[in-house]
């Protein structure tokens, strides 16, 4: 799992929130690595911990109510141990962040140019004029055809797609080696989404940055990801290269999820429905297979006591052994489909 090419290595990361004087882990024992020039997608439904994972990596979590253990290794430093000041040197410089809703993520009272230049002010020794030039360059880079005008505009004067391009320009301003994109296209129309995804992909091959893409949309994953980690209830339950995941998913959760996409079905078919509900953070079973309650027909004894990730094919990891016994209605035999 760990090679010299790794840009970022996450080891046994646990992020817990304090609720009524008790800590509850929203991200539990997550180990992942990001390589240069790859898109690692982290997929899951709301509450699975994917956004918490993203904010923990950049240290943007609320420090008062949050406890972080484990390691996030970048350039021989452990990010979880950094002081705020040390972190500020990385954020906006080595690590860029793209948010879901570009309208609320941009300061409504500041001109676009000023917002992009802001990071440069703290990370570089550029003069004011050089910063302005760099802003225009960045706007050009994200495909904005009239950068001079846009730099002087305010966020509300731009369309949704333009705003997200501006957000990407902000993320790129420090020439980062890692970009974390948290649902970057969820708030956009499909045609704009396609444009933004294409842009991200081409910028990546230009800059060779590693991108962590947080999303709930499997379609987006299929379009841009190189590797995928599926999260459920705070844990990574399956990790695989993208083609492997869509062709050969093993974990019952991943398979059910893939099967509930309307596209995969004949119009008259029923969509796959997962039994039960996602447990809330406070009611999470902390022992055994977390998905067992959603597949009650699989005998308790077929789950592992302490489910681990098993490498079942090169680069393909699945948590627990219950997948071997899982099959959809009408499917033949066990899960070795």
């Amino acid at each position: 799992m760990n090679t010299a090419k790794d840009l970022l290595t996450i080891r046994n990361l646990t992020t817990s929130f304090r609720i009524k004087d008790e800590y509850h882990a929203a991200v539990e024992e997550v180990s992942l690595s990001l390589r240069k020039n790859e898109v690692l997608a982290i997929v899951g439904e709301s509450g699975c911990g994917k956004s918490t994972l993203a904010t923990t990596i950049v240290g943007l979590h609320n420090e008062i109510n949050t406890k972080v253990t484990g390691e996030i290794l970048y350039n021989n430093q452990n990010l979880t141990q950094l002081s705020e000041e040390q972190f500020n040197r990385l954020r906006g410089n080595d690590i860029g962040f793209i948010f879901q809703d570009p309208l609320s993520a941009l300061n409504p009272l500041m001109r676009i140019g000023e917002q992009i230049a802001e990071g440069l002010l703290y990370h570089t020794k550029l003069t004011k004029q050089q910063r302005e030039e760099r802003v225009l360059e960045l706007l050009n880079q994200v495909g904005i055809s009239n950068p001079n005008r846009v730099a002087r505009q305010f966020p509300h004067q731009l369309s949704g797609g333009m705003r997200q391009r501006v957000m990407i320009a902000i993320a790129l301003s420090g020439k980062p080696s890692i970009i974390i994109a948290d649902e970057p296209t969820t708030a956009l129309d499909v045609t704009i989404q396609a444009q933004i995804l294409d842009l991200l992909k081409s910028l990546q091959s230009e800059t060779e940055a590693g991108i962590i893409l947080i999303t709930h949309d499997l379609g987006v994953v299929a379009e841009v990801a190189d590797r995928v980690a599926v999260m459920y209830a705070g844990q990574v339950i399956e990790e695989a290269p993208v083609q492997e995941l869509f062709r050969n998913a093993k974990h019952p959760y991943t398979r059910s999820l893939l099967n509930s996409i309307p596209q995969t079905h004949d119009e008259n078919d029923k969509l796959e429905v997962i039994h039960g509900m996602v447990p809330s953070l406070m009611n999470l079973p902390r022992e055994g297979c977390r998905f067992s309650a959603r597949i009650p027909w699989i005998n308790e004894s077929l789950h592992e006591k302490k489910p681990q990730l098993h490498e079942i094919a090169p680069g393909h990891f699945v948590r627990c052994t219950c997948w071997k016994h899982f099959h959809f209605e009408g499917e033949e035999g066990g899960g070795t489909v």
């Binding site: 950049v58 943007l60 705020e84 000041e85 972190f87 500020n88 040197r89 990385l90 954020r91 906006g92 410089n93 690590i95 860029g96 962040f97 948010f99 809703d101 609320s104 993520a105 941009l106 300061n107 409504p108 500041m110 917002q115 802001e118 990071g119 703290y122 990370h123 957000m167 902000i170 993320a171 301003s173 420090g174």
Partner: peptide, 22 residues
Amino acid sequence: TQDYVKTARSKGIPMRKVYTRH
């Protein structure tokens, strides 16, 4: 708690400046 404050922090701006500027 606004998103643009998160954006500002993600740019690596010191908290003190995030307060005054944003």
